[in-house]
């Protein structure tokens, strides 16, 4: 089976300069050589802490940001090599749901225009049948079609996120990047949105890249999980394997730091020391060596390469060389 979407050696650096016109003095290595694949109607969960490059990666995958290096192959097409015009034609096949339902909807547009605009551009609807099509999308995400003429401020956070989902679905995409779609929501609403996403995915056979910092959510939704640390994917595995046999010391620490809502469930905790280093100047050798409980001498000098330790289970750590 060939993957629907494939990232190959993606890198992104952002220049930093002292003044607006001066030459860049330094570079932030937000994403530093990342590869992964997602099959049709599967979910890849991407976890990591703030600033590790999850969002940058998510945006590169659907060409909202140009990678500094590397390729994105969507259904056999190299997206990075496409011209603006060619890209626009294919954009309807992949969409994104943003993190913040408060800032990702234009406050001056009605719901009809928010959802319908892209349909008109991509000729998925004509002016005549637009409101019917929008009504269909709204009902699909559990909102009443009467909401069409309202503005974003009239809705709660959960409802806005439903509008964001309806907008992403409007073009019938095959692949959606979900960038922390529930982290701004309360627990009870969060569960509603997670169920909605799962239902829609199985109904429409969409592939998802689900970005989150919450291991419980990622583990609940995904077939495969990739763990990111300072711009690199340090471990990829099927969800069950990752839970039962986390290989990378960082994954182990993340799992053990995850509070379990069950009294007495607190296991012996691997509490990491220190903070995440700055991506401006990532540590030499293995990026995790400053906080790693299992650090060895050569971790400081040599960066580990990806090793396959079992079927579909890859890890970047010198322990497995």
């Amino acid at each position: 089976m060939t993957a629907l979407i494939k990232a190959v050696g993606l890198k992104k650096t952002f220049p930093i300069s002292e003044g607006t016109l001066s030459k860049p003095t330094d570079f932030v290595h937000a994403v530093d050589g990342v590869s992964f694949e997602i099959n049709r109607s599967e979910t890849l969960g991407l976890v990591g802490e703030s600033g590790c490059g999850k969002t940058t990666l998510g945006r590169m995958v659907i060409c909202l940001l140009d990678p500094t290096e590397g390729k994105v192959i969507f259904d056999g097409i190299d997206l990075v090599s496409l011209s603006e015009k060619q890209l626009r034609k294919i954009r309807n096949r992949f969409q994104i749901i943003f993190q913040d339902p408060y800032s990702s909807l234009n406050p001056r547009f009605t719901v009809e225009r928010l959802i319908g605009e892209a349909m008109l551009i991509h000729k998925k609807a004509s002016k005549e049948d637009l409101s019917d099509r929008v009504a269909f999308q709204l009902e699909r995400v559990g909102l009443s079609a009467d909401y069409m003429k309202r503005y974003p401020h009239e809705f709660s956070g959960g409802q806005r996120q439903r509008i964001g989902i309806a907008r992403a679905l409007a073009l019938e995409p095959e692949f959606i990047v979900c960038d922390e779609p529930v982290s701004a929501l309360d627990v009870s609403i969060q569960a509603q949105i997670i169920n909605l996403l799962q239902d829609l995915q199985s109904e429409l056979n969409i592939s998802l890249l689900f970005i989150s910092h919450d291991l419980n959510i990622v583990g609940h939704l995904s077939q495969n999980i990739a763990v990111m640390y300072l711009g690199r994917i340090v471990e990829t595995a099927p969800a069950k394997k990752l839970r039962e046999n986390p290989a990378h010391p960082y994954t182990q620490a993340l799992l053990s730091a995850n509070p379990v809502p069950k009294p007495g469930g607190k296991s012996k905790r691997k509490v990491l020391v220190g903070d995440v280093p700055s991506p401006l100047n990532p540590p030499k050798g293995c990026r995790f060596h400053t906080r790693c409980p299992d650090v060895m001498d050569h971790c400081l000098r040599q960066s580990p390469s990806s090793v396959k330790i079992s079927e579909n289970h890859w890890v970047e750590c010198h322990l497995y060389d």
Binding site: S156, G158, I194
Partner: peptide
Amino acid sequence: RGLLNSLPNFSSGNRLNPIPGTV
């Protein structure tokens, strides 16, 4: 009870049983 049923669980993957409606 509703709150506890709304929590996604890494290990089970069962369908969540959220509280309907909003505050």
